[in-house]
């Protein structure tokens, strides 16, 4: 808007005469011949590998088909899923508590959380799981009561904790250390002004946390947590150290020990792991969408409404095609201004 226009026609009297429509740019599109060459090359190599794999006898595809839905395998897959879900739920709850403890003004509470992290993040999970398996050698009974007094309740460790429980405890306590750092990062990512605004309204610390800070930090917490869930799904294959042997990987190793044909069973296990990871990725996508309320404009999936999972929203270049156009509908912002 020029100054002449502003000082001229008094405001709101006559609408300004529209400018002539701008001329669209007509230009020869820049060619990328090497892109096409590399793309063809990669596709050719990929197809060759696939065809080769399909006819290679060592993969033994008929056996893969035979064992994929074997009862023992599908049950083991369910156990793997149970291990993942239970230990993640415990790890997330514990992680939130540890994160809040690390941000506490109380130096003792802070140090305890730091010590926990130091121990559980600093030792291999395989070692931790092995130790949990030997816990009954270290603590033969679990007593609940006042120290140095007759306990109220007493369990024999061996009887009270089976290997499934110990596997979950081992996985959860290890994971909690990582979750604590993820949650802490999320809490710190929320603007300090949010805390002040809630405080100024008379909200308590707990209300500020649960109503204002945590919901906003979820946006930061969820993507790496999805990562951790997927990682946990695969880490369950280590619980053989406890030793717990009814999950997917150990079960398929056991079967192949009888058939002397390990490769197809490894493929079967991998296919099940992939199946679960794919489902988890879809779930993560919807969770991210839920917690992006109010700040959703920066979400990648908005650009490409067709995409299903968060991980596959990238645009694949196709040989010879025009660069994929990403157009945001003008009505995307309900405010219609700013």
């Amino acid at each position: 808007m020029s100054t002449a226009e502003r000082s001229g026609a008094s405001v709101g009297q006559t609408p300004p005469t529209p400018e002539p429509a701008s001329v669209p740019i007509k230009a020869i599109r820049l060619r990328h011949p090497w892109r096409a060459v590399f793309a063809v090359l990669i596709v050719v190599v990929f197809v060759l590998v696939l065809v080769d794999a399909a006819f290679r006898p060592a993969y033994d595809w008929p056996s893969v088909g035979k064992y994929l839905f074997d009862r023992r395998i599908s049950q083991a897959a369910l156990v793997t899923l149970e291990l993942t879900v239970y230990s993640m739920v415990i790890a997330i709850i514990l992680g939130v508590i540890l994160a809040v403890m690390r941000l506490s003004p109380n130096p003792v509470v802070k140090s305890v959380a730091w010590f926990y992290l130091w121990v559980f993040r600093g030792t291999p999970v395989y070692v931790q799981l092995t130790i949990w398996g030997l816990i009954s050698l270290i603590y033969s009974s679990i007593d609940i009561g006042i120290p140095f007094m007759e306990p109220w309740v007493s369990f024999q460790t061996q009887a009270a904790l089976n290997t499934f429980t110990l596997a979950i405890v081992g996985l959860a306590l290890n994971e909690a250390a990582y979750m604590a750092e993820i949650v802490r990062a999320g809490l710190l990512a929320v603007d300090r002004g949010q805390d002040e605004a809630a405080t100024a309204l008379g909200m308590s610390w707990a209300q500020t946390m649960t109503r204002v800070i945590l919901p906003q930090s979820m946006r930061v917490i969820i993507p790496p947590t999805g990562n951790e869930v997927i990682s946990m799904l695969k880490t369950t294959s280590l619980v053989t150290a406890v030793p717990f042997s009814f999950e997917l990987f150990t079960r398929s190793r056991d079967i192949s020990a009888e058939t002397f044909n390990p490769i197809p069973l490894l493929i079967v296990a991998s296919l099940w792991y992939l199946f679960f990871t794919s489902i988890l990725m879809v779930g993560q996508h919807f969770l991210e969408k839920r917690f992006a309320r109010g700040v959703g404009d920066r979400q990648p999936e908005k650009k490409e409404p067709g995409a299903v999972t968060g991980a596959f929203t990238g645009v694949m270049p196709v040989i010879g095609s025009d660069p994929p156009a990403i157009v945001l509908p003008p009505k995307d912002r309900p405010g219609g201004q700013r």
């Binding site: 603007d191 002004g193 002040e196 109010g294």
Partner: peptide, 10 residues
Amino acid sequence: FQRFNLFPHM
């Protein structure tokens, strides 16, 4: 506040 500090998720 100067920077409004509205709760963005509400």
